[in-house]
């Protein structure tokens, strides 16, 4: 079992990816108590945005040079779609029974996925995504792919930036206040509409970063990738305590680790030899979600559980 360090590294990398997407769920949920099902699709659209930017550049452009443009384009696509969704789909439903925005979110998710499938050239199958050249980087106990470097750098940067934004800026603090008590926040003169849009936008930007990380890690993007990624990211948000932005990242890391370890080691457990391997990793992630809900529903860091009484 000497590959444990390798498995841990794999798990953390995967987890950081989930964590970045989970930020979007957790921020929006913290403020409007809405599970934005379409967030997985916003992640996916970021991936296609980045791919589009890359294809604009002359063929053979080094990925490293292309990256800034790709990041900008991915963010622009994701943020625009997220803000549009907020403005035209969710905002009119504020104050409606809570089923309505959830169903809208599902409709939006399906529509976005299908729009890419139908209108993006050749998107009916996976499209190759540029990768960094060169083999894996050996770090002694374990090795990571070259594409993972992007994640290793981007994820901590994103978290630091977010932490700074939330604690130091006016908007960030207003956001905290709104997530704790929207009505009072409104009374205090906070423009909740703007806060909500900001939350959607930040979530989308993080999803866009995650999409590029996903692209360079796996070397492809496809129209379906948002569904499972979104589900996992939501699980991560719940694990960390929904509404808690640091919790989302920690939940992501825990989920990633659990998935990597389950994939690698579960088949060694007597009686479960057939339930290991990659084919079952989603199942184990889901079992983890159920267990957490059963044992610690408020999540690892969270405190809020049920409705406001």
């Amino acid at each position: 079992m000497n590959d444990l360090p390798q498995q841990l590294a794999n798990g953390l990398l995967l987890g950081a990816l989930y964590g970045l997407i989970a930020i979007g769920y957790t921020m929006v949920y913290g403020i409007v108590q809405l599970i934005n099902f379409a967030h997985g699709e916003i992640f996916m659209i970021g991936g296609f945005g980045a791919l589009t930017a890359y294809l604009w550049l002359p063929a053979g452009t080094s990925l490293l040079f292309a990256l800034p443009l790709m990041i900008l384009m991915a963010m622009a696509c994701s943020v625009l779609v997220a803000m549009g969704a907020e403005r035209f789909a969710y905002r009119p439903l504020r104050g409606a029974p809570r089923l309505a925005p959830l169903i809208t979110a599902i409709g939006l998710s399906i529509a976005l996925q299908q729009a890419i499938w139908a209108f993006y050239p050749d998107a009916t199958k996976s499209r190759p995504f540029p990768e960094f050249e060169g083999g894996r980087i050996d770090l002694g106990a374990f090795a990571i792919g070259r594409g993972d470097l992007f994640l290793v750098i981007a994820a901590p940067l994103c978290m630091i930036a977010l932490g700074f934004f939330v604690s130091k800026t006016r908007t960030g603090r207003a956001m905290q206040a709104t997530s704790q008590d929207p009505d009072t926040a409104k009374l205090m003169g906070i423009n909740t509409d703007r806060i909500i849009v900001t939350a959607f936008a930040i979530g989308a930007a993080f999803a866009a970063i995650a999409a590029i990380a996903h692209g360079v890690k796996y070397g492809e993007v496809n129209f379906k990738m948002g569904f499972i990624a979104g589900l996992k990211a939501f699980t991560a948000a719940v694990l960390g305590g929904i509404g808690n932005i640091y919790g989302a990242m920690i939940g992501g890391l825990v989920l990633g680790l659990a998935e990597a370890l389950a994939t690698a080691y579960i088949e060694n457990i007597p009686g479960m030899s057939q339930l290991g391997g990659g084919a079952w990793k989603d199942v184990w992630a889901f079992v983890l979600l159920i267990l957490v809900l059963l044992l610690r529903p408020q999540g690892l860091l969270g405190q809020r559980v049920a409705d406001r009484a």
Partner: peptide, 15 residues
């Protein structure tokens, strides 16, 4: 008063 209300709003009936 506001604090009490806010705290109550966050209290859950279970936890």
């Amino acid at each position: 008063v506001a604090e009490v209300e806010a705290a109550e709003a966050h209290a859950t009936d279970r936890a």
